[in-house]
Design a protein around this nucleic acid. Structure first.
Lengths: 240, 240
DNA sequence: AAGTGGTCTAGACCACAAA
DNA sequence: TTGTGGTCTAGACCACTTT
């Protein structure tokens, strides 16, 4: 911890950034165990308490997971957590609904102006478009369209059927862990195309969710537009 | 800190609960200054570091606010923070929209079965129903219906026009601070009554938000059903 | 100058999980 | 038994705000 000048940035913050760098660089992969508080502190020349504070903040950011007696590990996006953490639909009785993918198309094309702006890539860049229709309890409930930078996800179109939880695939096959998502929700009428895809009447109210999925560094990994039929379902949020 | 037995609950957690009790009991009112870390620790017989940990968690819960050099204060629901913290609508360009109340009716009646269940009061209890229509940028955008236990909000119907930010009123006039809200969102068609109230076509897709507003102790203070026109607006959320 | 929260240290002990 | 995270202490010093 002696290379950087002070600049009034707290020591524990530097420790935080160093650990993030190790994860981003691939030195620490998802699921890997971190050094203990004592060892990390010794290695970086800070006290155990300072290393601990950094680890606690990393845990609160969702970057790592800590378990008493076991150790500290780089957070893993399991299929379950990825699917349910960012999937907010519940049945009206409050129970978790499990969405099953039914149809899926993947194609590569040039990104629209909005898409490249959101993804932060150059104008004219290629993107992958993953479109899926999903059902819950045997009823068609959603159409989702995910846009990815083609440069970051080579060959994602040649893998055959994609898993239910795309975020697990992003992490395991491409090393991008989604830790945050920003969403904009609106109520919109079903267009003719959507209505036929979801077998509902044209004009049926749908919940439109525009999502930006971000990695540790704040980069937009995926830009997704979802449409949900909320007859028997609701989108649940807690504000604090 | 010597009265309670250990029971494996951390000391800082007890400090946390003691401070919450002082706020709930009215001993510490919103805006009041708390003792310093050192004084609080000395008073309760714990170290400054332990008192500090409790205060940090209280701050993360939104119960208190801390400012270096100034002190620690019971969180105040200002009209601005109350209005914007739990009001998630933004214009499509992302700028904050300011909702203006247009019409307002307050009436007292028996709570429905669902209402008394949500509010946790006895069957047949009286409730206040506050219905409001709001506009943004001169356009009608929402109809909100808030349900309150009449027992907890005496005379709220006799105050004349209510302020834009109801949560500030709840806190300042009745001592209930809303610190958390749980919401269920759906897309629904406008009924005939709603359509005429909001001057839109019947069947127009609306965003329906069912909110439970909770105080520190987790009690439901208000049960609110809102309907929003999301033509030019979106409901913004960040998932972490 | 005095008082506050913010950072950092060094060490002790407890609770939990795995070998 | 060993190693991990979790709690708690006592004290030092820094940064910020107010008087």
């Amino acid at each position: 911890m002696d290379t950087a000048r002070n600049a009034s940035v707290p020591l524990y913050r530097r420790v935080y950034e160093i650990v993030v760098q190790r994860i981003v660089s691939g030195e620490l992969r998802p699921g890997a165990m971190l050094p203990s508080e004592t060892d990390l502190g010794a290695e970086l020349g800070v006290s155990q308490g300072t290393a601990r504070k950094a680890l606690i903040e990393l845990e609160q950011s969702g970057v790592i997971e800590r378990r008493q007696g076991r150790g500290t590990f780089v957070a893993t996006t399991t299929p379950e957590s990825a699917l349910f953490h960012f999937f907010r639909l519940r049945r009206t009785d409050g129970t978790q609904a499990i969405p099953e993918p039914l149809e899926e198309t993947v194609r590569k094309r040039r990104g629209t102006a909005k898409e490249v702006a959101v993804l932060g890539c150059d104008k004219g860049s290629s993107v992958f478009e993953i479109a899926r229709v999903r059902s819950i309890d045997g009823r068609l409930v959603s159409r989702e369209t995910s846009i990815l930078q083609a440069r970051l996800f080579p060959g994602i179109g040649d893998r055959g059927p994609l898993p239910n939880a795309l975020y697990t695939l992003y992490q395991q096959a491409y090393g991008f862990a989604v830790v945050r998502a920003e969403e904009k929700l609106r109520a919109v009428p079903a267009s003719e195309a959507i209505a036929s895809a979801l077998e509902i009447a044209e004009g049926t109210p749908l919940m439109e969710v525009e999502r930006r999925a971000l990695d540790i560094t704040g980069r937009v990994i995926e830009f997704r537009l979802s449409l949900y039929v909320t007859d028997d379902l609701s989108y649940n949020v807690t504000l604090k």
